[in-house]
Nucleic acid binder design. Sequence first.
DNA 1: CCTATTTATTCTATTTTATAGAACAAATTA
DNA 2: TAATTTGTTCTATAAAATAGAATAAATAGG
Lengths: 114, 114
Amino acid sequence: MGKEHLGEFEELVLLMIVLLKEDAYGLAIRHAIKEHANRKVTIGAVHGTVNRLEKKGFIESQLGGGSELRGGRRKRLFTITNSGKSILEKSRDEKMALWGKIPELSILKIGGQG
Amino acid sequence: MGKEHLGEFEELVLLMIVLLKEDAYGLAIRHAIKEHANRKVTIGAVHGTVNRLEKKGFIESQLGGGSELRGGRRKRLFTITNSGKSILEKSRDEKMALWGKIPELSILKIGGQG
DNA sequence: CCTATTTATTCTATTTTATAGAACAAATTA
DNA sequence: TAATTTGTTCTATAAAATAGAATAAATAGG
């Protein structure tokens, strides 16, 4: 058994890798996080996390071919594994089940305190 | 502005506090996590997390009255603040929006690899 | 070919979260 | 007032999150 639960950022990165399909590598993941989650993170944060995810078997990586653009070294492309898909879906289902038990959260009035 | 994001376990604990309503204290939270999330955690994990959540302003605590049962010291009862409700809903909405962008995740076939 | 530029990954360090469980405290009851 | 029960605090450690500098590799232009 691998780890039971994804960290908050691990889950986000994993989602981005699925979203990016064939072009999921460090900088693209960072960019996708900015676009889709409106969240600014450093490249170190992303790579630290993909390394962890790969070590846990939730993603795999392979070196991409040479870029067609100006310069740049070859990309390390990530793809989700079945184990990764499985834990993502599990995470989603469990969380939705919990939210389903708290109807109040759907109609909460946000005030000024707190 | 407080912290931007809840950790994975912080979110779970916050959800349990909402679920438990008037009776959210350390041991009850731990028990609710076992019941609702089928997850066994130690009391130290729970208290470390509620302390953090309170420091960040997502929950408040007050000492409860004496117990009606056999023994036991007074409970430290937690309630969610508006700030806590707000970040919980934000977390839920953002995650659902992301999942909405990945229709594949709804029909993934889980295989043997990974 | 060699240097500047670009694109990308690795490396190093630190802070914050997550986790465990022992120690301690308080309430009740006999 | 001792044993039992219920609960919180304390101490330590591992794992996740984060930042950004250092490094590497690819290409283009002179």
